[in-house]
């Protein structure tokens, strides 16, 4: 036991300061994009692997639910900011144009009241590449420790307040996803995490895909990214339960 205490001392206390401190993001991090006035939309459209360009109030915008943040359109007058507070509760809020951005607030008092101090999540992996799952798992490590906010991944949908779905929902996972949702006590919430879950991402046009998630279940929280950086996902969950 003495050895373990020594080990604990050697390894130190390493849980990140985020939040409330700003997260430590890499230099080349691609956050929420901003379409500049001089942007060459046609050139950017041709480079985009997921057809993420759309219109918002008549102006060109990037649907960050489709965007995989490859950053190629940065050469065409799109600025990838360091804004990591990208998640939204409505799909349209994910459209990024030239206008200033403020993250969407959780207005549902019920969610704040019921989940503000305890959110139990059942994760369902449905046809993705496993990177989204891996970076959700990371929130469980002591570097991020989502447990300190009462957020926990649970084994059974019967114990869950929310399911967090990753992947474009392969046809082969459709039934299992529906059954998992049905097994959850209501009210419950659905979180679509990662470009595949939000929009199908790079797999949107595959005949083997039945998604995206909001074609199958009512989605309450969309988290962009390929995969979402742990800071993006943790911020999303905290804002969703009214803690940010």
């Amino acid at each position: 036991m003495f050895e373990m205490l020594k080990a604990r001392f050697f390894q130190g206390y390493r849980t990140g300061k985020f939040p409330p401190a700003a997260p430590n993001l890499p230099d080349h991090f691609c956050g929420r994009p901003q379409v500049e006035a001089h942007a060459d939309i046609e050139a950017a459209r041709a480079l985009c692997p997921t057809h993420a360009w759309c219109e918002k109030a008549g102006a060109p915008a990037i649907d960050t639910g489709k965007c995989i943040f490859c950053g190629k359109c940065a050469a065409c007058g799109v600025t990838f900011t360091r804004e990591y507070r990208m998640a939204a509760m409505t799909r349209e809020k994910l459209f990024a144009d030239a206008s200033p951005y403020t993250p969407e607030e959780q207005l549902d008092r019920g969610i704040r009241k019921m989940c503000g101090h305890s959110l139990k999540i059942r994760q369902v992996s449905a046809g993705g590449c496993a990177a989204c799952e891996l970076d959700f798992n990371v929130l469980n490590t002591l570097a991020w420790d989502m447990g300190r906010f009462g957020i926990q991944a649970v084994a059974s949908p019967r114990h869950a307040d929310a399911i967090l779905v990753t992947g474009p929902v392969s046809r082969n996972m459709l039934l299992a996803l529906k059954k998992t949702y049905e097994a959850m006590p209501k009210p419950c919430w659905v979180i679509a995490s990662g470009a595949c879950a939000v929009s199908g991402g790079i797999y949107a046009e595959s005949p083997d895909v039945a998604g995206p998630v909001d074609k199958i279940l009512p989605v309450d929280l969309y988290v962009p990214g390929c995969p979402p950086h742990p800071a993006v996902l943790l911020e999303a969950l905290l804002r969703f339960i009214g803690r940010m």
Binding site: A130, N172, A176, S206, D208, P227
Partner: peptide, 29 residues
Amino acid sequence: GYQCRGVEKLLSGGPDVKTLHLIETAAGD
């Protein structure tokens, strides 16, 4: 087979803007 999403089929017809991303996400780790 639960994760089957047709990576190889989507790759045929390339190379295009998607190709490398499909290759990279066949197994995300």
